[in-house]
């Protein structure tokens, strides 16, 4: 019960723009060096020191960028959906700010996942692009991110824009699950799975450890970016309130 009470209090406090601003001010100076360091360790370890793949040689190393980017894009989209739901139910200002802060970095990660996938696909599959189920669902996820950003940009009133983007993200999260299954079904209809990622879950620890570290690093960078963007957005939105006038 104590834990629950602490959690709800924390949740309500973070919902207040002023508290969030102070909290992130304390957190960020610690978070961004850790995020940068973790990413650097993961990437250098993966790109330079991890063993070669017995089948793909060195070209497999792009997964140390590709997999964290794809995972981050997916996580960001779910986070946007959760923020959208919170905003629909409680009309929390911070949730709107969060959606606006998450969308750009998530879209960039989805684009990075697609581009690195294409670069890896050329030597491995012999082509930059195939209409594979995973590639297609990632492409649609990028479109969904762009849709949310376009909607935020199109609506002049920031609160209305945030709520509209929240509703769209909630619908999108439900839809993205159906998209995933439909695309897998569609792909198996047209061609057998001639292309498979070698390795997969049978990855040895020397490769898995740097991969997990770089995933953690990218997620932390995502968090840093979201906090930074949210702070800038907060200052702009609350520019007429007393606490911002006191600050600047």
């Amino acid at each position: 019960m104590m834990v629950w009470k602490t959690l709800t209090r924390w949740y309500h406090q973070l919902g207040s723009p002023r508290y969030f601003y102070r909290f992130s001010e304390v957190l960020l100076p610690w978070l961004w060096p850790i995020a940068l360091l973790t990413t650097a360790v993961g990437l250098v370890w993966g790109l330079a020191f991890a063993p070669e793949d017995y089948q793909q040689g060195n070209s497999y190393r792009i997964i140390f960028i590709h997999v964290p980017a794809a995972g981050g894009a997916l996580l960001g989209y779910v986070a946007m959906g959760v923020a959208g739901l919170v905003n629909l139910v409680w009309r929390m200002k911070m949730a709107e700010v969060m959606i606006k802060a998450i969308a750009p970095f998530g879209a960039v990660l989805a684009a990075i996942a697609l581009i690195t996938g294409a670069i890896w696909g050329k030597p491995t599959w012999g082509t930059y692009w195939v209409w594979d189920a995973r590639l297609t669902s990632m492409l649609i996820m990028l479109f969904l991110y762009l849709g949310v950003m376009a909607l935020i940009n199109a609506i002049p009133d920031p609160r209305q824009a945030g709520r509209a983007a929240g509703l769209l993200s909630v619908v999108g999260v439900i839809n993205v699950v159906i998209v995933k299954y439909s695309v897998e079904w569609w792909q198996s209809l047209h061609q057998g799975s001639t292309i498979k990622l070698t390795g997969g879950s049978t990855m040895p620890a020397e490769m898995l450890t740097p991969l997990l570290i770089s995933m953690l690093g990218i997620y932390l960078l995502f968090a840093v970016s979201v906090l930074w963007r949210a702070r800038a957005e907060l200052l702009w939105r609350e520019r007429k309130s007393a606490w911002v006038k006191e600050l600047v």
Binding site: G147, L151, I155, V171
Partner: peptide, 27 residues
């Protein structure tokens, strides 16, 4: 519903909705 109050709703609407149409098209 989300774009009804916007002046240039049409093209924005297709950006929002077309990705959501994928499952229906596929099936």
């Amino acid at each position: 519903a989300l774009t009804v109050s916007l002046r240039s709703g049409g093209i924005l609407l297709s950006l929002l909705v077309l990705p959501l149409y994928v499952p229906v098209l596929v099936f």
